[in-house]
Amino acid sequence: MQIENAPTLTLESPDAGSPQSVVANGIWQVHALAQCGAIKTINATLTSLKDKPALVWDLTQIVRLDHIGAQMFWNAWGKQRPAQLQLAEKQEELFKRIEEASKLQMPRTRPNRFNWVMTLGSGMLNFFEHTQGFIRLIGQVVQDIGRFIRHPMTGPWREVSANIFHSGFQALGITALVGFLIGVVLSYLSAQQLRMFGGDMYLVNILGMSVIRELGPLLAAILVAGRSGSSITAQLGVMRVTEELDAMLVMGISHGYRLIMPKVVALAISMPLLVVWTDAMALIGGMVSAKVELNLSARYFLQKLPDAVPLSNYIIGLLKGTTFGMLIALVSCHFGLRIKPNTESLGRGTTTSVVTAITVVILADAVFAIIFSGVGF
Rank of each mutant, 00 (worst) to 15 (best):
S270L: 06
S270Q: 09
M271V: 03
M271F: 04
P272V: 08
L274S: 11
L274Q: 13
L274M: 13
L274D: 04
V275E: 02
V275I: 08
W277F: 15
W277E: 05
W277Y: 15
T278E: 15
T278K: 13
A280D: 04
M281K: 08
M281Q: 12
M281W: 15
A282D: 07
A282F: 03
L283R: 06
I284L: 15
I284M: 11
G285V: 13
G285A: 06
G286R: 10
G286V: 07
G286S: 12
G286T: 11
M287E: 09
M287D: 02
V288D: 04
V288Y: 09
V288H: 09
S289W: 01
S289K: 13
S289Y: 01
A290G: 15
K291I: 00
K291Q: 11
K291L: 05
V292K: 04
V292T: 14
E293Y: 00
E293R: 10
E293S: 12
E293I: 03
L294N: 07
L294P: 14
N295G: 12
N295S: 12
N295P: 01
L296G: 00
S297N: 06
A298I: 13
A298G: 10
R299E: 14
R299H: 12
Y300P: 07
Y300T: 14
F301E: 08
F301Q: 09
Q303E: 12
L305P: 07
L305T: 12
L305I: 08
D307N: 09
A308D: 11
A308Q: 07
V309L: 12
V309Y: 05
P310Y: 04
P310Q: 08
P310G: 10
L311S: 13
S312T: 15
S312H: 11
S312L: 13
S312I: 12
N313F: 01
N313Y: 01
Y314P: 12
I316S: 10
I316N: 10
I316F: 11
G317Q: 07
G317V: 09
L319M: 13
L319A: 14
L319E: 04
L319Y: 00
L319V: 11
L319N: 03
K320I: 06
K320Y: 03
G321T: 09
G321F: 07
G321Y: 03
G321C: 14
T322L: 14
T322Y: 00
T322A: 15
T323R: 04
F324D: 10
F324S: 11
G325F: 04
G325K: 10
G325S: 05
G325W: 03
M326P: 01
M326G: 14
M326Y: 00
L327H: 00
L327G: 01
L327M: 15
L327Y: 00
L327W: 00
I328G: 02
I328T: 08
I328E: 02
A329L: 03
L330P: 02
L330R: 01
S332T: 05
S332R: 04
C333S: 15
C333K: 05
C333Q: 06
